[in-house]
């Protein structure tokens, strides 16, 4: 069969291209262009707001990979991810299983309660939580002391040993509702006949869940894990409002590190946008790498 020339193919599909055009322009302006510019800026010695910018090749990258604080923040980001995602996935699943039960009359109420933190502004939650965990009259400490669980107030956000777990806990609480919703959506794809058939075959309780339901929702699990993992690597507003990365870098994740070097130096000297871009590009590639790995894992699981 004779193939149409490309120009003819494009002309024939002109309406499709026309409809794609606005989205392509916006993607180019707000995604492709900033990514490209950040790659370019990462090769400059530039504060970001003076005219003077010097091309220095890969020197920013060299400096970043030799900076202890860069790697500390890098590792801390992954600690945050590995510390929160499994908890959210498991807790979200358990809650979804309970709330998916049609017999439970108050399920919509509990769903709403658990989902409420998701729709609350994250900066507000961050600020309110600093009061909740305050060692001076904070409700968390008041509870611990009134129940004799501690004899002295705990400085949750000021102690390097407790700050990251505390922020992680708040993060899990804040976003648990969305994980629950993902799981509920997944569970509602399981047809009722499957439950009925399983029960007739004598599969009940944990056997029903392990051997029947879980294999059905597993592909959803991988998508949920992927979304949750990327989400847990983007926690700037919560940490900035709760601790700003302190005390002494104890809760500084990569986004805070990039922000600190790009815009704000505590000591007030010139920021380093070029260096921050190099750190950002490095970080972006690392996140992309993880996303690709998860994508491959998902394809493999689907084949199984």
């Amino acid at each position: 069969m004779h193939k149409k020339p490309l120009s003819k193919q494009i002309y024939d599909a002109r309406w499709c291209y026309l409809f794609v055009l606005p989205c392509s322009i916006l993607t180019g302006m707000f995604v492709i262009y900033p990514i490209g510019m950040s790659w370019y800026f990462s090769l400059l010695d530039w504060s970001g707001f003076t005219k003077e910018a010097k091309f220095i090749g890969l020197q920013n990258y060299y400096e970043a990979v030799n900076d202890k604080f860069f790697w500390d923040a890098f590792i801390r980001s992954f600690i945050f991810m590995f510390g929160t995602v499994p908890v959210k996935i498991v807790l979200g699943f358990i809650i979804a299983v309970f709330l998916n039960n049609q017999v439970l009359k108050l399920a919509p109420f509990f769903r709403t309660v658990i989902f409420m933190p998701v729709v609350t502004a994250i900066a507000i939650i961050g600020i309110v939580m600093t009061f909740v965990f305050s060692p001076f009259n904070g409700p968390a400490n008041k509870f611990l002391m009134s129940t004799n669980l501690t004899s002295a107030p705990i400085d949750f956000l000021g102690n390097p040993d407790t700050v990251l777990p505390t922020v992680m806990g708040v993060y899990v609480w804040k976003w648990l509702g969305i994980t629950m919703m993902y799981w509920l959506a997944a569970l509602q794809t399981v047809p009722q006949d499957v439950y009925d058939a399983a029960k007739i075959d004598g599969a009940e309780g944990y056997r029903l869940w392990i051997h029947i339901i879980l294999p059905i929702v597993l592909p959803f699990a991988i998508v949920i894990i992927l979304v949750e993992a990327v989400g847990a690597l983007n926690v700037f507003p919560l940490i900035e409002t709760m601790t700003a990365g302190g005390p002494f870098f104890s809760s500084e994740v990569m986004e805070i590190y990039i922000f600190r070097t790009a815009f704000v130096t505590d000591s007030g000297t010139m920021p380093r946008l070029g260096y921050a871009c190099a750190a950002g590009v490095f970080w972006g590639v690392a996140v992309l790498f993880i996303t690709v790995l998860q994508g491959l894992w998902m394809r493999r699981t689907r084949r199984i």
Partner: peptide, 23 residues
Amino acid sequence: AAKSRVPDPSLALVIQGLYTGQL
């Protein structure tokens, strides 16, 4: 002054780190 950058960790952070026991 325009070229200068306070090194990481700054004195302020060093004192904070000493106070928290991280340094």
